[in-house]
């Protein structure tokens, strides 16, 4: 047992139950469905912006890109224009690859030492599942815009269509069995988050570095995905009521319609927690990656001077001081001097 993940697991189960019991037994729909989501959204927006502002206020005194390829030098030497960009265009492509495709993580390889032999082994699983996780999360988020817009924008409907390609339907005069279109994104999200959790448990060195704050968001997202999948496929909630409720939230005229299942409030509560937790956690890598000075700067500080706003004068040992100390020896050795004595 590891106290870090046990703590996080217990915390998430506890929060899950609080919301469930709060709605089911105490009828606190307004608290978990309205008050907490509003507060969480405010915390998220204000927290996110202030964190980014904090980063932005710290200057970038030096131009320190990690160069991952050939520099721009002589015209006949082929530059790695993306991995070692010297122009803003190159930086934009580098950043886009980094943010959209996790370029650096794709470089990953696993080191192994067996019987004195060093090997660097193909290892793209983390890259693959990280990519699956983030992209499916994005798709899920965009799909959810259905609940906050009227009419539903075309791209949301189009994405839903693409996302639900797998349908299980038996429709004839005798039986009518059908699941709603299965959203691939939801399943992928849950699978990827479980993978990310399992690698924290099974790769010993990753387990060793993992903190409670690494497990907590994983469990939280698992619980969110789980409650969402429950609602869609198993314990059906009143979808018309849900839409009425969410539209009430975004139009600032919230109300609690009758008959939406408790799972829905649990789902909303957990999402609210994730939002509120976000700005204080490592999840801020979402914003941080854009500002990372080893990636978002061109390696051109020899061609164009980079200015450090706090560059201050320092004590130096001047040539005059140097010559004063060594003048006689310099003259004796036949080295030129500024002053003969």
């Amino acid at each position: 047992m590891n106290k870090n993940y046990m703590f996080s697991l217990v915390a998430v189960i506890f929060l899950f139950l609080i919301a469930y019991v709060g709605v089911e037994a105490a009828g606190l729909q307004w608290l978990f469905g309205i008050a907490i989501p509003y507060v969480a959204t405010i915390i998220f927006v204000v927290g996110f912006i202030s964190r980014v502002m904090k980063w932005a206020y710290s200057p970038v005194p030096f131009r320190i890109p990690s160069t991952c390829g050939q520099q721009a030098s002589l015209p006949w030497i082929r530059q790695a224009t993306i991995d070692n960009p010297s122009t803003n265009g190159g930086v934009i492509v580098r950043m886009a690859l980094e943010i959209l495709l996790f370029r650096s993580l794709f470089r990953n390889m696993r080191f192994e030492l067996k019987e004195g032999k060093f090997s660097y082994i193909w290892e793209k699983w983390l890259w693959l599942f990280a990519l699956a996780f983030h992209w499916s999360f994005l798709v899920v988020l965009v799909r959810h815009l259905r609940f906050f817009t009227e009419p539903v924008p075309f791209f949301v409907r189009y994405l839903e269509f693409l996302d639900s390609v797998f349908r299980v339907e038996v429709l004839n005069e005798v039986v009518q069995v059908g699941l709603p279109g299965v959203f691939v994104s939801g399943i992928v999200l849950l699978a990827a988050v479980i993978f990310l959790f399992l690698r924290r448990i099974f790769i010993t060195q990753v387990k060793y570095i993992s903190l409670a704050s690494d497990y907590f968001p994983l469990f939280l997202i698992m619980a969110i995905a789980f409650s969402g999948i429950m609602m869609r496929y198993f314990v059906k909630v009143d979808i018309v009521g849900v839409k009425e409720f969410t539209m009430g939230l975004v139009t600032f005229s919230p109300s609690v319609p009758e008959g939406i299942g408790s799972v829905f409030y649990v789902h909303v509560f957990l999402v609210s927690l994730l939002l509120a937790y976000f700005p204080f956690s490592k999840l801020m890598h979402l914003g941080g990656i854009f500002l990372s000075p080893t990636r978002n700067l061109a390696n051109n500080s020899r061609a164009q001077r980079h200015v450090n706003p706090w560059n201050y004068p320092v004590h130096v040992h001047t040539y005059e001081e140097y010559e004063d100390e060594f003048r006689e020896k310099m003259i004796e050795a036949g080295l030129p001097v500024e002053k003969e004595s």
């Binding site: 080191f111 990280a130 690494d214 890598h285 990372s292």
Partner: peptide, 23 residues
């Protein structure tokens, strides 16, 4: 922290994925 954006960001955003470990 106030002088180096690098320092502040690197303190905040590590997710401890472990990709760096055996590098």
């Amino acid at each position: 922290l106030e002088r180096f954006r690098s320092f502040r960001i690197f303190m905040d955003i590590c997710v401890r994925c472990g990709a760096c470990a055996d590098k």
